[in-house]
Design a protein around this nucleic acid. Structure first.
Lengths: 189, 189, 189, 189
DNA sequence: CATGAATGAGTATTCATTCAT
DNA sequence: TATGAATGAATACTCATTCAT
């Protein structure tokens, strides 16, 4: 029922998520989500945990590198994951975008988002220290803009499945690389 | 009552917008919006027109330049406008972000968004032709990512008014400039 | 505005009559009926008076005869009037049918209906005394059934304007004549 | 809740029927009818089916005879049923009277009414062919007037429960018999 | 006189929630 | 565990009514 919830949130938004729909969409009866989780709020908490775990899985295994390479790896991992497992991609989108305004999905997700941004910012800072990244870049702002780019791509893809997210993802990676890199050492070229 | 609607949509999202809130927030009675506009749907149509006009005002007067300079000018104009007139900034955010999934705000806004992206893409293409912009940039994707960056900044600022959107805007401009520019001729340096 | 009210009540029923519709249908603004009559209730009172007067005009000029002849004359007059002046016919229908359950159109109409039934019953009674009408006829019941027949014809005609109410009216007259007459003296044959 | 609906429609008319009243009147909560039937419209559909079935039961078991005897039997059955089971009597009234203008109660009832009138007309026609009924009677009009008479009695009885509907029913039967019968063979004398 | 803006009451509808099976 | 019946709160909508122009 949690995967069904992710699907419905990604498609219709959090506000339109009804327990009835969750039950039906998961192949059960109207009232099961309420019965099983006790209340809508507790269902949303469970959904948030589920989403957080899915999102976390996406970030695991990327952590090897540091600096600009890590930033690009993380971005690539998120986008690759999205194409391989749409549900997990939707989870990413929920963490990065929906968690901003809607506290309904609990503060856990907001915290997760903040941690992710902090992770990206840390790598950017390391890139600056290593001389890969322009020294006038503000790591926190760069992280925010990277996340925003990812969200924009996912949003577009969710609204229009024929959107070529692979090509657009390459553009995002190039934009980050050229946008952040200091002139002389190009980290991936 | 339309300005009140923009405020509420920007703060709580479109789904949570109730006619009751609109009436109260505009200083009127609970039922006036329904009475005046006939139905929620027609109110949303009116709101879309209002938002579209506000957004359009923001873009007017920027059109002088072309190429990468125009892209940067538009971005700067949107962000400047946001700080000067928050309501118009919220309108921008509604056009660029909310219009994606929620058809409730009519297709007018979706079209306006598409037109805006097309305008940005056109300027990027001119930048490529002028040699200012890397030739491997895909104009449509670049436009999308620029819009996503703007949305991300506005979203963050709406959620956290103390966010230094001026500084972050400068970072966005720098990211666009370095990210798109071909190596040798730097258009604004 | 009263004639418009009669039209609307005849077409849609009393419950669906809104002051807005009355105003528009009479070629004025939404709020004029309320402004002019003060309240819906007072408008309905006025409408009832208007209807009563229209109905009364229909019965005037028939009163010459007595007995079965008078019963047939009244019935004929009502039906003839209906075809000549639909609005007045609708008024008749309102008096004879709508006034039963809906006290909203005031007790005036109920009284008018009762008086009309009493008039018919009186003529039936005179017919009995004159030997024209079967002695086992109950005058009040006969009056009721005659009114019911008239209502049925008007109702059908309002729902289906192509209905041949003239022919059906002749059938009603024949049914009354044969149904009430004592065997030997046939009053109109 | 359907029986409650019949009761309320018979008492107050279809327009005044609110789902709130239905719920309360059936001993349930305000919102149950809407919840159970989905919408007012679907409730009315269900009510129409229920009414149609009840009405149909009334007509079943009368069909043995033909001609004038059948016409009188049907009329008597309807009136007897009314006294024995008021709810079913109300259903009859809804079919014969309310179905005329208000399409809300679906076309099913209008069709049922038409079929009933056609049944009566058929028996009248057989009566003409058998020589029991005056040859100048128009069967369809006769059927309409009989139905109108029945409606008139029920309406009066609903508005005034002390009304002696048994005696009035006898008068209706006598009126039909004398009104339709050809002179010489009196079918029930 | 006539119009339109504004209010508030009543109704249908949706949906979370509780409860019995 | 799972289902469906039932309740009650929140919201959109209709409409009579009041008031200012």
């Amino acid at each position: 029922m949690l995967a069904a919830g992710v699907r419905l949130v990604a498609r219709e938004g959090l506000e339109k998520l009804t327990l009835t729909d969750v039950g039906k969409s998961a192949g059960y009866s109207r009232g099961l989500p309420a019965h099983h989780f006790g209340s809508r709020d507790r269902y949303l908490k469970a959904l948030a945990s589920y989403v957080a775990i899915e999102f976390d899985r996406t970030l695991r295994g990327v952590d090897a590198a540091t600096g600009l390479v890590a930033v690009l790896d993380i971005t690539r991992a998120v986008l690759t994951q999205l194409m391989a497992d749409p549900t997990r991609g939707m989870a990413t989108q929920i963490v990065l975008a929906d968690s901003r305004r809607q506290s309904a999905l609990s503060e856990d997700l907001a915290r997760l988002r903040d941690e992710t941004l902090a992770l990206l910012a840390r790598h950017v800072r390391q890139g600056i220290e290593a001389g890969e990244v322009r020294p006038d870049v503000v790591p926190e702002h760069a992280a925010l803009l990277i996340a925003a780019g990812i969200c924009g791509l996912i949003d577009t893809w969710l609204a229009e499945p024929r959107f070529d997210i692979a090509a657009a993802g390459d553009q995002l990676l190039a934009l980050i690389r050229h946008g952040l890199a200091s002139r002389h050492p190009d980290p991936e070229a």
